[in-house]
Design a protein around this nucleic acid. Structure first.
Lengths: 231, 231
DNA sequence: CATAGAGAATTGTTCAACAATCCAGCAATA
DNA sequence: TATTGCTGGATTGTTGAACAATTCTCTATG
């Protein structure tokens, strides 16, 4: 392997250097607010109001809206405005369907993956356990998502990583309509731990099976809770 | 099961009813032009020029650009403009990596899928064979993509379908930098036929194995041709 | 030949205007 | 009372112009 070219190192910093457009930064803050629940599903975002609050022009705001609509965090109704997406039960089913493909597929090829990626999934589990012991249930949910993001990362594919981040952000929308984070997240701490341990032990197939169980349980539970709540 | 509510039928038609915005239509035509090669990879799209050609304002055009950047068909360089994406060899590798996850995963669960979806994949293969017999190599490529879109559709997930469509559009960018459509697409007609037949015969695992072979060969060949061409 | 710098061209962002559409509320009617 | 029809007000859709910020081009200069 050749010596690290300092120019390569610099070119990696370039991304940090060239600033990002206002529209993208606006999209970033809106995305964060949607994820953390400050903007609840169903909320309408008026161009006038939101634009004044963020101190950006309508056009710039609209560019940001387009991005988030494409990410499915907002829905756009022609001549009516944009709304924070309200997930339906079949959206949840769909989200779990694609997660299953990406995550179990990624886990199955974990044997050939960078060991650091396996370690990262273990870290996420540990974070979740710590948050649970301190009763920080929202953080348990966050750690759970980081864990599954780490599983998908075993595919070592930037596009899979992006897709996964997007899907998990979307899934946050489902958690908001339900109101019992502890009951939902706590049962999976143990299952996640098992998956992480199997991975570290170099048994990806067994980990994938356990992961499939996780999906069965989580999906069933979430959809059930969902129907209870939303009818 | 209750009688079909005519109101439900109408609400399904709603999507057809509400028109789409100018920005989206602009994005549609640009997407088409990129896919069919009229806008070659690397081409710069000036807001001034493109806006005048399409007779839309800069603001509207920029909204359309945002959409296509998000789909990775365009790249946006701050203060420099938007360009039709030029795929690199590692982009191609990445595309095949996620395709492998989605398609093989979808094929493995084909047993439980709607038979009409299995039939659709067979139709796509037949179309490809017909196009090949008539020397329409570009159409062979199109049919090939329809075939793989049909495979992904076995997952019966709208999000998988969307993701897949996007990935295949992106892959078209790779085909444009190579210039031998026949040599690239012809060898796979037979493999596709085998996969479709195995599916119809109710042997999804065998089909998935064949599909894995397809990915190995296609990826290797495409990346090799790619390196030859682009260095 | 390389470099620096001035000027042109392009993008980033805002603002104002108007058309198209939706919505809330009220009147009219059966 | 419940439904329909209308009207005025509010919001979005789209355009055009303007200016700031940045990149590009080209020439002069060493």
């Amino acid at each position: 392997m050749a010596a690290a070219d300092p120019l390569d190192l610099l070119s990696e910093d370039r991304a940090l250097l060239d600033r990002t457009s206002t529209a993208e930064r606006v999209a970033d803050v809106l995305r964060q607010r949607i994820i953390d629940g400050a903007l609840a599903p169903g909320t309408r975002l008026s161009e006038e109001t939101a634009g004044r609050a963020l101190a950006v022009s309508r056009n710039t705001l609209r560019e940001a809206f387009r991005l988030l609509v494409h990410e499915r965090l907002l829905v756009h109704e022609f001549h009516r405005g944009v709304f924070v997406r309200v997930l339906r039960a079949d959206d949840v089913v769909d989200l779990y369907r694609i997660r299953r493909l990406l995550e179990t597929g990624a886990v199955r090829r974990a044997a050939g993956a960078d060991p650091a990626l396996v370690a990262a999934s273990g870290d996420a589990v540990a974070d979740g356990e710590r948050a649970a012991s301190e009763q920080r249930w929202w953080d348990v949910g966050t750690a759970n998502m980081r864990f599954h993001e780490a599983l998908a990362a075993l595919a070592e594919s930037p596009r899979v990583n992006d897709t996964m981040r997007q899907l998990l952000a979307e899934l946050r929308l489902a958690f908001h309509v339900m109101s019992r984070p502890r009951e939902f997240h706590e049962p999976y701490l143990d299952l996640n731990r098992q998956i992480a341990d199997l991975l570290r032990a170099g048994r990806p197939e067994a980990a994938a099976s356990r992961l499939d169980e996780y999906f069965d349980r989580a999906e069933t539970q979430l959809v059930a809770a969902y129907r209870d709540h939303a009818g």
